[in-house]
Design a protein around this nucleic acid. Sequence first.
DNA 1: TATTGTTATACTCTATAACTATA
DNA 2: TATAGTTATAGAGTATAACAATA
Lengths: 161, 161
Amino acid sequence: MPTPPPETAGDPVSDDVVLGALLATAHQYARRALNEALAPLNIEARHYGVLAALDRDGPASQRRLSALLDLDKSAMVRIMDELERRGLATRNRDARDRRSYAIELTPEGRRKAREGGTAAATVGDRLFGWLEPADRERLVAMLTGIARQATGPGGDRNSGP
Amino acid sequence: MPTPPPETAGDPVSDDVVLGALLATAHQYARRALNEALAPLNIEARHYGVLAALDRDGPASQRRLSALLDLDKSAMVRIMDELERRGLATRNRDARDRRSYAIELTPEGRRKAREGGTAAATVGDRLFGWLEPADRERLVAMLTGIARQATGPGGDRNSGP
DNA sequence: TATTGTTATACTCTATAACTATA
DNA sequence: TATAGTTATAGAGTATAACAATA
């Protein structure tokens, strides 16, 4: 039951809380919008992310895909199970390192990736299209910085080199 | 295993995807950072949100708290169960409408709310403190706009008046 | 009839540990 | 020993439907 985010202002503590809550709200609503746009294709955001990465960067191991998409390796297993069962991607043993797979898109998978791209572009245009290019750049920089600060000193326990 | 968000640029479609992924990353890392800061108090972000709302706005029904924090009412039940079990808030029947509760903080709950506020302020300062005030305002405006677009036309199915 | 709160249920997401097969 | 992938499990978050008590 989406409700407009609560408005507050002035309070030095709750300003941060509001910003954090806004981050959550924007993310959740955006993900929901993407999922709704992808629903006719019978895939969800998690599938699209993998399909798009494969379409753009070519075959990759599950490990590489996990790192690329910032997903846990066990989450990747389940997503690949789903993609394989739907005939969108295949797991082929890498000849040079038989521990890894070379994950590849099937023709149908490539088609889904492209169709998903169109759907994602439509949603992206609605959500982000109204932003001036300069604002958009600022937004990317700010979100990147926030993520960095959150994983940085005092934040994350495995931020080793 | 947090990995810096993937960098990409130029691709008209993947720009949006990157922005969406950044939204997810920033949100998740920020929530994790808040949870870690609240861990010594034995509460999590969901508890703190309710405690802070009660501390600031005074007693409220579960319904009102759900709306205020954009939570499902059944989620609110579980959070209140936890707060009550920990002696941080109490459910008192509202005399004027015996269907509702008047949720109130206990003294211990109020203390947690304040201590949580301090912890949240520390995290907020680390995550958001480096932003210029003007950038911060822009960020709030952009996130609000994105959330509005996401729930707006073509997006959400219950966006009635 | 509508609303507040409760319960049951289910699916997604994230996270961890233990295991295998390869290296 | 270390890495790629698998499996099992658990908890958080989100969502829905059915229900009781009250309005």
